[in-house]
Design a protein around this nucleic acid. Structure first.
Lengths: 153, 153
DNA sequence: GCATAATAGTTACATTTGAAACTAATTCAG
DNA sequence: CTGAATTAGTTTCAAATGTAACTATTATGC
């Protein structure tokens, strides 16, 4: 006889749980910096990438934060208008622009970093150090594997 | 002396990693059922909730899949137009409507469930059974804790 | 060199999404 | 009862997002 079709328990289904968890975490963090600094999630990620790896081109930023070039362009437009990011056209290839945080951008970045790390720390408090290491490693493997599955089709 | 401000390593920052992982997993799964069945992620989640717990009201669905009532209303509008969901107004409270999958809705649901479970299974292949249990438990705890932090403000 | 293709980034348009206002029905306070 | 408040769900309007087309510049094939 045919095997009974297994039930889909949405509440225990990995893609669903990951999605909900990521959403609540991302929104909680956004609540902490949106009020004082008026940044979108994308804008903050661009700043975080520049804060860590500048100078970068817009394409570099997109690769770092896994975001398409239109979204990056729009985030940068807002950030440069506010004077948080400086752009300098590359002399040898005038299509490219080299991006970095301005002094004001660095100041805001420096104030958000401890807020972000503090939130992460509070979140992680529910795990032991051992569990935390384990969770980090498992998410890294799932991430790499999900990418592989995707490429394979 | 003041403690040196710690660097934010975006690539190891939990909220960021969760967000990217959830996104790639959700999109990969959507790729599998969007082509054959032309459903949005929200529509599929509504169907999954009804497939498992019907009959439900629209509010019930929203609570189950953690989605606001406007999004649920729009997803249901599409699903009822396509005849995948049936709605029956509650006799004792005519504001409410009792929702369930139609025969066609159940047929599609029955075809997507194994696809979804199969994807989850392939994804989980990169973890041992032990690691998988561990990951499930850690995400459950993080989820509960993130909710608590959020309420606390 | 010159035409063609490719790349960096922006703009335009159409679709999706979210917040707030709205309709309809029910509950509650007095 | 009657009017105010609450609840279920939809509609409306503005903002965010994605896709495709576009500009400007550089690389490539012949």
């Amino acid at each position: 006889m045919p095997s009974p079709s297994q039930a889909l328990e949405l509440e225990n289904f990995l893609p669903y749980r990951l999605s909900i968890l990521a959403q609540i975490v991302s929104e909680s963090l956004h609540d902490l910096y949106a009020g004082p600094f008026d940044l979108t999630v994308t804008q903050w990620r661009v700043m975080a990438a520049l804060g860590r790896f500048a100078p970068l081109t817009a394409s570099d930023v997109g690769q770092r934060i896994v975001m398409d070039k239109v979204a990056v362009s729009r985030a940068l437009s807002g950030l440069t208008k506010r004077g948080l990011v400086e752009r300098a056209t590359d002399r040898t290839d005038r299509r490219r622009a080299s991006l970095r945080l301005s002094a004001r951008g660095r100041a805001i970045h420096a104030r958000i970093v401890p807020i972000a790390l503090g939130y992460e720390e509070r979140l992680y408090k529910v795990l032991t150090a051992e569990e935390r290491r384990s969770f980090d490693e498992l998410t890294a493997r799932l991430f790499a594997h999900a990418g592989t599955l995707r490429e394979a089709g």
